[in-house]
Amino acid sequence: MELERKLIKKASLEKLYQKLQANGNKIFAPIIKDGKTEFHYNPSYAEVTYDHIQTIQSLKNTVFPKIENLVRFTTDRNGTEVTEVDLAKVPSLVLWGAHPCDAAGFKALKSIFMWDYKDEYFNSRMNKMVVIGLSCYKCDDNCFCTSVGLNPGATNGSDILLTKLSTGDYLAEIITEKGKEIVNAAAELFEAAPAEAKEGNLAQVKQQFSHEKVTKNLAGAFEHPFWVENSLRCIGCGACAFVCPACACFDIQDETKGKTGKRLRCWDSCGFGLFTIHTSGHNPREVQSQRWRQRIMHKFSYMPERNESLGCIGCGRCSRACPVDMNILEQLIALEKIQ
């Protein structure tokens, strides 16, 4: 559909939030708690913040939960009985105040979960979710959305994108049919588009590398000494992968209690030594430099090639979360230049 522009006054935004909540939607919105900004389910509107640069955790938990119950099972002498999870019960969710990079993160996940095999768990959650995005008016030096083809006001991935204007009111860009339904159901809260342009109200994120060039360089860089040199300090934890909006690796585990059990899909990380270890004991990614290479290769070489999507949206969460300053932006800038 063609993008529509409208104005929503600050006071009306609260009414929209309350209306969505009253209609039985679960809302996932950012609040500041114990000094940390994170998304929480169903906070009161007064708690919701519009001023965060980025939350610690990504929003992927909404569609790719850290534990997804795939099936339940009961075993006895006669065999195993499997009970499917009823995906029709997945609740409707409104993601309120996701930044454009986060909205784009869902596209990256979709390129994996809806690639050859169509993952119904992911898809059911995606279909039940509406993304009300929020443009960024500020950034920090870990942000690099403009280097991965996005920008602080990018509409890609949001159903409605809000941008705060100088008046304190918001420009609402209605991007998808899902977004339009919300606007139509609360038409009284929206007004004619403002004259003020969106561009002047966005953070200035300088482009620092060309992702096309990085992808091109990576094709010949598998054996490059870069990986060992730049990952000696990597300690092999999963912090980067677990806060990443686009990391989608998982591990399937059965949890049993007596005769009943659940099959669970849990987050995993290619940074872990155990990730690739074979039953024989052989590990094709034996050392951390190979695992770090995999992280970058997957995001900037394999995914563009196979999934037609980058596996990185430039949110900078991994760099902020890393306990040993493995800064992905710094490494990508270097990879753009390697020979």
Partner: peptide, 10 residues
């Protein structure tokens, strides 16, 4: 805790 094991790795 999402078990990234940063505590263990550090």
């Amino acid at each position: 805790c999402f078990k990234c094991y940063a505590c263990r790795s550090a």
